[in-house]
Computed example of a mutant assay.
Amino acid sequence: MTPTDEKGATGLREDVADGILAERAIDGDVAAFDLLCRRHVPMMRAYVARMLRSISDADDVVQDSLLLAWRQLPTLRDPTSVRAWLMKIASRQALTHVRRRAADHALPEWEIALPRETEPENFAIRHAQLRALSTALDTLSDDQRQCWLLREIAELSYEQIADELEISPSAVRGKLARARASVYTQMEGWR
């Protein structure tokens, strides 16, 4: 295999570390930023869709987040933490989107795309599990749900969550412990 065979559509090797891509993107390399986006958009989209309970709204928020990230690249202090930085931007954009909604505006049902290759029985079971998890998460307080999502979906560290929510790491641990205990209890029938 030649080195060019390992390169993706952007002309960059697919296995280049995030930190290197971020440094190149800071220097104006659009292809490096594109590769970072392709790596991290699925996680950003899943996280934001869960927060907003709408895939279409999540797509808009993620797109806005990426535009904001491109503009704010020079402010990225640690290029190796670009993933957490992108998630933080997406989280803030999602919270801004939620705040803009009218208080009495009901949140839409979460749209779930049906994969064609799944069998109906497996899909039904998975759908019921996701609905049960969604119900369990809906019973959490907003701060507990945010902590749970940032840890379990975005995979941020306790310190990163504390920075994002502007609370102490010990408060994050407490909120996560309560959230996990509640979700664990409510999901008892699915184990």
Rank of each mutant, 00 (worst) to 15 (best):
T2I: 06
T2H: 12
P3C: 12
K7E: 14
A9K: 01
A9D: 05
G11Y: 01
L12V: 03
L12P: 00
E14K: 05
D18H: 11
G19K: 00
L21C: 04
A22T: 05
A22P: 01
E23R: 10
D27Q: 12
G28R: 08
A31T: 07
A31V: 02
L35W: 06
R39M: 09
H40L: 04
A46G: 15
Y47I: 02
V48H: 03
A49Y: 09
R50C: 07
L52R: 04
L52S: 08
R53Y: 05
R53C: 08
S56K: 15
A58C: 14
D59G: 10
D59E: 15
V61F: 04
Q63P: 01
D64S: 15
L66H: 00
L67Q: 07
L67W: 01
L68V: 09
A69D: 01
A69K: 06
T75G: 03
L76W: 09
L76D: 11
R77A: 09
R77H: 01
P79H: 14
T80Q: 04
S81Y: 10
A84F: 01
A84T: 10
M87I: 08
S91I: 00
Q93L: 00
A94Q: 02
H97G: 05
V98H: 05
R101N: 06
R101D: 02
A102H: 10
A103V: 15
D104C: 05
L107K: 04
E109F: 07
W110L: 14
W110Y: 15
I112N: 01
R116E: 15
R116I: 02
T118H: 02
N122H: 13
N122M: 10
R131N: 05
D138Y: 09
D138Q: 07
L140R: 01
S141K: 09
S141D: 08
S141F: 12
D142I: 13
D143P: 02
Q144G: 04
C147N: 07
C147W: 03
W148C: 08
W148F: 13
L149M: 10
L150Q: 09
L150C: 11
E152R: 13
I153F: 02
A154R: 04
A154L: 06
E155S: 07
E155D: 08
S157F: 03
S157R: 09
Y158R: 13
Q160S: 15
A162M: 13
D163L: 12
L165S: 04
E166D: 13
I167M: 11
I167R: 13
S168K: 05
P169C: 06
A171L: 02
A171I: 01
V172S: 07
R173C: 11
G174S: 13
G174F: 12
A177K: 11
A179W: 01
A179H: 03
A179T: 00
R180F: 07
A181Q: 15
S182F: 04
V183T: 11
T185P: 03
E188I: 08
E188K: 14
G189M: 10
W190S: 13
W190E: 12
